[in-house]
């Protein structure tokens, strides 16, 4: 494992911890999109179908369990916790799941490396992860006042994507036959979706102002 991959995983982990911290200690999920969180839970459930059959390393297995556990517990908190669920911006978070899920499923059935159930589900999870942030970005755009933790959460997720691209570049040059077009293209699309947010995040950080997205 190279330094970019490790740093990418750690920022991904940090993003989840920041979100759990916000929900667990402040008992608020204001500005957080339940749609995006449900899509992430679906992404991990479909991607880690091999968790007990394909052992890569203890690190991989533990991280998979953490991502599965945290994504489902965030969804649980936002849906059912008696305090947290009251802070959910339900009326603003109106993105429809199936607009994203159905095209990704069709695409995974058409474009995959191997037409088996596990492989199609894995490909579906890559396509869906690429666009799962959209409901969150739409919600940020709508509510416009973004608290620090929500801003940091999205920033860390974007950083994780960027580091994964560096990891692929590194692996391409250091490992023979490391070519994964589906992973790369969907990963690149996902990272580009953060570009706009990153621009405003950087501006607010540079000017030492509160993050504020234009209408």
């Amino acid at each position: 494992m190279n330094i970019f991959r490790l740093a990418g995983d750690m920022t991904h982990l940090a993003s989840v911890l920041v979100l759990l911290l916000k929900i667990h200690t402040i008992k608020s999920c204001a500005g957080v999109s339940l749609k995006t969180q449900e899509l992430y839970a679906l992404v991990f459930a479909c991607r880690y179908l091999d968790i007990f059959t394909n052992f890569v390393s203890l690190y991989n297995t533990v991280m998979k369990l953490i991502f599965l556990g945290s994504s489902f517990s965030i969804v649980w908190y936002m849906r059912y916790h008696k305090v947290v669920r009251r802070s959910y911006d339900k009326d603003q978070d109106t993105f429809r799941h199936y607009f994203l899920v159905l095209p990704c499923l069709v695409l995974a059935l058409l474009i995959n490396e191997k037409f088996t159930f596990k492989e199609v589900m894995w490909t579906f999870s890559l396509y869906l992860e690429a666009v799962a942030i959209l409901p969150q970005l739409v919600l940020l755009q709508r509510t416009r006042n973004i608290d620090n933790l929500t801003g940091q959460y999205v920033f860390l997720l974007g950083a994780y994507r960027g580091l994964y691209i560096l990891n692929w570049i590194y692996r391409y040059f250091t490992e023979p036959h490391f070519v994964h077009w589906i992973t790369w293209i969907s990963g690149l699309v996902q990272t580009l979706l953060y570009a706009d947010f990153f621009y405003y995040y950087y501006q607010s950080w540079k000017n030492n102002q509160k993050l504020h997205l234009p209408a």
Binding site: R5, D9, D50, V56, M63, E113, E119, N167, H177, T183
Partner: peptide
Amino acid sequence: QESDDEHDEL
């Protein structure tokens, strides 16, 4: 080296 159908990333 892992074969192509074994995914080693998260």
